[in-house]
Computed example of a mutant assay.
Amino acid sequence: MDGTVVHRKLRFGPFELSIGERVLRRDGRVLPLGDRALDILTHLADRPGEVIAKQELMDHVWSDVTVEEGSLRVHVAAIRKALGDGQFGNRYIANIKRRGYSFVGTVVPLAGSAESGNDYVALSILGCLTALFSGDFDIAREMVDRAVALNPNSLRAWEQRGWTYVMAGQPEEAIRSFARTIRPSPFDPSLFSAFTGMGAAFIGLGRFDEAVAATRKAIRRNELYPVTYRCLAIALAHLRREAEAREAAAGLLKLEPGFRISEWPAGRRLPQIYIDGLRQAGLPE
């Protein structure tokens, strides 16, 4: 592992992954996890939302030996057990059929811990989370705008900027940001979040047919991203395609059994058009 990441710490849910210490903690308590499992978890959590091929993971973790795919599955199972993955609607690691694994939880680099030169990514994520949880859109926009100014070529920073502007009620600017993410490689399977964000922005503009098209593209890239099903259900509901909207809602509840409209953080930051669509799709309050 190169020295640019040895001091980094990542937080997701109640967990903190200290890369330098090679330790996973939950609420301050160290969890037992072997070295190989920690290597896999770090590789996945350091690239949230990306689909990482199984062969890449095996080459990274077992660079000095040849192993069967079963070894990878055993260690991923150990990680999922440590994280309580799948319990109470919590999802962290998704198995993308015939392609690999993806870390689907929200990862926050802890302040002061990033020394990899990727401060612009951490800043963009922090800006998006500020919009999501505090609703301070002025500060949030300032953060994400600064992030893309620091590195205009960072696709991740542009994606986070797009989501921030969706929540800030500026869908046109959000679409411009997502387009910057998608344009260089429109068929990249890791772009499911950007296509979902594009769909969310189209909903904000009342362009529901385009929202359906964008979210369908997202699902073709990743069938296990719950946010996509929310946006698809909303768009279909507003198009009065009731059966399809309820099917999308069922897809969401399969991935997030505990989803409730009233408990959805983004619901407090988005125009009523989003909430109305979820209700019309039959999702629980």
Rank of each mutant, 00 (worst) to 15 (best):
M1H: 12
R8F: 03
L10P: 02
P14N: 06
E16G: 02
I19H: 02
G20P: 04
R25F: 06
D27E: 14
G28D: 01
P32K: 15
G34D: 13
L38Q: 08
T42Q: 11
A45C: 06
A45N: 01
V51H: 05
V51F: 04
K54T: 11
K54D: 05
V61Y: 09
V65W: 05
V65D: 04
G70K: 15
S71A: 02
L72Y: 12
R73A: 11
V76C: 05
A77P: 01
A78C: 04
K81H: 11
G84T: 05
G84M: 09
F88L: 12
G89C: 08
G89V: 06
R99V: 01
G100V: 02
Y101F: 15
Y101T: 09
S102T: 04
V104F: 04
V107P: 04
A114F: 03
S116L: 10
S116D: 15
D119M: 14
I125S: 01
G127C: 03
T130P: 01
T130I: 14
A131I: 13
G135M: 06
G135C: 03
D136E: 13
R141F: 12
R141Y: 11
R146A: 10
V148L: 10
A149S: 10
W158S: 00
Q160R: 15
R161L: 11
Y165F: 15
V166Q: 04
E173Y: 08
A174M: 11
A174C: 05
S177G: 03
A179T: 12
A179M: 10
R180D: 01
D188Y: 03
D188E: 13
F195A: 00
G199F: 01
A200F: 14
A201K: 08
G204C: 07
G204I: 03
F208A: 02
E210R: 13
A213V: 13
A214K: 11
T215G: 00
R221S: 00
N222L: 07
E223P: 04
Y225E: 06
Y225H: 14
P226I: 07
R230N: 02
R230P: 00
C231T: 07
A233L: 11
A233M: 07
I234N: 02
I234Y: 09
I234V: 15
H238P: 08
E244G: 00
A245M: 12
A248R: 13
A248S: 05
A248Q: 10
G251D: 01
L252W: 10
L253T: 09
L255S: 06
E256R: 15
P257E: 05
G258W: 11
R260I: 09
I261K: 04
G267M: 12
R268Q: 11
R269F: 03
R269C: 02
L270Y: 05
L270Q: 10
I275A: 01
D276E: 15
A281H: 07
G282M: 09
